[in-house]
Simulated scan of single mutants.
Amino acid sequence: MAAVRVHREISGPSDAPTVVLAGSLGSTHRMWDPQVEALSEHFRVVRYDARGHGESPVPPGSYAIDDLADDLVALLDDIGVERAHLVGLSLGGMTGMRVAVRNPERVDRLVVLCSSAHLPPDVWLERAATVRADGVASIAESIVDRWFTPGFSQAHPDVRRAHVDMVAATPSAGYAACCDAIAAMDQRADLASIGAPTLAIAGADDPATPPEHLREVAEGVPDGRLLVLDQAAHLANVEQPQQVSAAIIEHLQGAPA
């Protein structure tokens, strides 16, 4: 499948190193709002909507992780960037790892948040079938229940509602096709070939990709480190924005998190 021209938003100084932020399944570039101000002080920040999401095209059929990687590489080509830092959460982390394996010359440093090199396929095939039958809105509430800890959702009902609305607005065909990509993905054997220094960040309370998934990434990459954040579920960047932003900046600048 040919690469698509994804919707992107760019901020920060044009002459600074570029960092590309790739988001979770069911999200748009707006999921990175908590990081933009801090990262833009140091980097040219590029956020985008994955294919099938937000304002990006929704190609028909199932997708593969290579299709998402192709889109990210095409984005780098389109904005004239030979080499960038990649930061991805969940599906975005899977995409970042694939680009780091396939196109190592395009990746400087890598941050993988709340993601995995492999997830049980049956869960994702079932979710794809549900979404194709009933729409994304039918699962939006339950998805966001896994994105945040109960305490955060109770303390920030407006944030929770905004993310439920974000998930519900995702095109059902695009969401389901990305579920297919996750179901077919197994990058465990490829981790050893990732040459980019990699920071894996886990939410201690993440039910979707628990810390052991990020530990596998950190230990599988030759130059990998693990950071586990307390009081954070799947969208750790929203629940612990200052800690995540600081860890990203320190890693991308070559300092320990």
Rank of each mutant, 00 (worst) to 15 (best):
S193P: 13
H85R: 07
Y175W: 05
V6C: 12
A218G: 10
S14R: 13
Y48I: 06
E216M: 12
P210A: 15
G224T: 07
R161W: 05
L229K: 02
R47G: 00
P57I: 11
A22S: 11
M31R: 09
V159D: 04
H29G: 12
R225W: 14
I194R: 05
P34W: 13
A208V: 15
A196W: 09
D134E: 15
R5T: 12
V4C: 06
S24V: 06
Q253A: 01
A189I: 06
Q154H: 07
R109P: 09
M31P: 09
V101K: 01
S11F: 01
G23E: 14
G93F: 00
A173G: 08
A22H: 06
I139W: 03
L227V: 01
A232L: 03
S138K: 00
L21H: 07
F43R: 09
L113S: 13
R30Q: 11
E105R: 03
A117W: 00
A247I: 12
V136D: 00
V36K: 07
L91W: 04
P171A: 08
G96K: 00
L72S: 02
G26T: 07
A218Q: 13
I249C: 05
P34H: 15
V111Y: 10
E212H: 11
P150S: 13
V111W: 05
G220Y: 15
V217S: 00
G220H: 06
R98Y: 05
G203E: 05
A84V: 04
D223V: 13
D49I: 10
A38H: 11
R102P: 03
A168F: 08
A247R: 13
A177R: 03
A189H: 08
E82I: 05
E239G: 09
D205F: 05
A177C: 06
Y175F: 14
P256S: 11
R132E: 15
D77W: 09
D70M: 04
V111E: 04
P241T: 12
L110F: 05
A177V: 01
R146K: 10
D108P: 13
V4D: 03
A255I: 15
D33V: 10
S62D: 14
A137R: 11
Q231R: 14
R132V: 08
